[in-house]
Amino acid sequence: MSILTINNLKVHYPIRGGLFRRKIDVVRAVDGLSLELQRGETYGLVGESGSGKSTTGRSIIGLEEITEGEITFEGQNLSELRYRDRKEYYKDIQMVFQDPYSSLNPKKRVKDLIAEPIRNFENRSKEEELKRVQELLEIVGLSPEVTYKYPHEFSGGQKQRLGVARALALNPKLIIADEPVSALDVSVQAQVLNFMKKIQKDLNLTFIFISHDLGVVRHMCDRIGIMYNGRFVEEGTAEDVYENPQHIYTKRLVAAIPDIDPENRKEQAAFRRQVKEEYKETEHNYFDENGSVFDLKPVTDTHYVALP
């Protein structure tokens, strides 16, 4: 059974204008997105800024007002529930944010930062709470000695571990990581990525990994969805998407990834030029008359492409 199903999700923001700030138009941040997530898999949500990938993530944990569509978690349609009942489900879905520097309150100690979700959802004694915090610190590879430290005493990678420890506090089943390594240096990034892979295996977590970095996504994810203008242009296994991109937008994105081998520079440039030409010539084939992305059509069992 799939752990999470998103059906035709739409998140529209009103644009207000005129003298009385009436709603004159909407921004279609997410515009008809469907997704099915299997337990234990890592799903990569890829797109450039404004593609709606973060909005999708935020909708799942209830941080966005959904205009249309359903989000079903473990068989329960979340949008049908009242706020109070929904809270129970949100325990099982946690989020890790991009910037470890600003997502941790600098005035709180590690103990309080990590215990915060525990206090919100569970009733534990002080000792139990402390024990749980230290357990969590151990899971993320920090020593229990840091319990009483403040965030500024940690390096960027360690802070991101704290962010993950907090996300793990309530034994979630699904973790949504929104650009968790974008603010980090490569060596620190490696550390966090390794460690996320490890806890995913150890705790059998399901991950949604939101990123604009195609290298990172390739490394982390089993399946990948490429978003453009609030819709999927292509979805498939990492291999489908990287080795055999079908949609022109995906091709452009893949072509834009810098190749780490300078020997391939010429071919890479040629490939990029070729894709650019192809984009110019065939772009109109891939979008309908309003410039919107078509619905996904299966190409193979795993590979879906938005084609007319």
Binding site: V186, S187, Q189, A190, Q191, L193, N194, K197, L214, G215, V216, R218, H219, M220, Y242, V254, I257, I260
Partner: peptide
């Protein structure tokens, strides 16, 4: 060498990245 082996690459499938 450490830097190069800590970058996740689109091409090769390493299970774990090198951590400095």
């Amino acid at each position: 060498r450490s830097l190069l082996s800590s970058v996740p690459s689109v091409k090769d499938e390493k299970e774990m990245l090198h951590v400095i």
